[in-house]
């Protein structure tokens, strides 16, 4: 989708939500759906569209973990760090992933392929430890399986 089309779509949503109470979060979530992340221009657009200071939009964007201020990788790789998974050794897996991908948790690989995220409980505790790549869920993951799994993408 072209940039203009993206902004038009966001504008329509803003127009819909403008007269609702508490529109900021839904608008920001929609913007992230459309653009993939919330850079300065998009946040400015929202600030002007909803007539709130940019400071407020940015304050909300940086408070919640799910809002990305930077462009994300092609694939989002989330390793669950919830208690059940942690107790089953998720930290070791995370270390291994950081090593294999040569990034720190939260960053995107140099080739733009993966963004490594340490995520909150995904709710699949029965399959701990759990890893998600985009919408694919991998359960009972072992450190050795990691290189194989990554190769699929």
């Amino acid at each position: 989708m072209s940039d203009k089309a993206k902004y038009d779509e966001l504008q329509s949503f803003i127009d819909e939500m403008k007269n609702e109470k508490g529109p900021l979060m839904p608008v920001m979530q929609k913007a992230q759906d459309i653009f993939g992340y919330l850079p300065f221009d998009v946040q400015k657009f929202i600030a002007l569209g909803l007539d709130v200071p940019l400071t407020e939009v940015y304050g909300v964007a940086t408070f919640y973990s799910q809002f990305n201020l930077e462009k994300q990788g092609e694939h989002s790789l989330s390793l669950c760090l919830g208690t059940a998974c942690y107790v089953k050794g998720a930290q070791t897996l995370l270390d291994r992933l950081e090593q294999e991908l040569k990034v720190k948790t939260g960053d995107t690989t140099k080739d733009g392929k993966f963004t490594l995220i340490g995520t909150r409980c995904l709710g699949c505790c029965g399959l701990a430890p759990v890893m998600m790549i985009d919408d694919d869920v991998y359960g009972q993951v072992k450190a050795d399986e990691i290189p194989e799994i990554l190769k699929k993408y």
Binding site: P23, M25, M28, V60, F63, Y64, S65, Q66, F67, R120
Partner: peptide
């Protein structure tokens, strides 16, 4: 949007309020 504290009722209310 990814904030555990929003499970606390007044924080949840703040979040609904944007």
């Amino acid at each position: 949007a990814g904030a555990f504290v929003c499970g606390e009722e007044t924080a949840l209310i703040a979040s609904i309020e944007g």
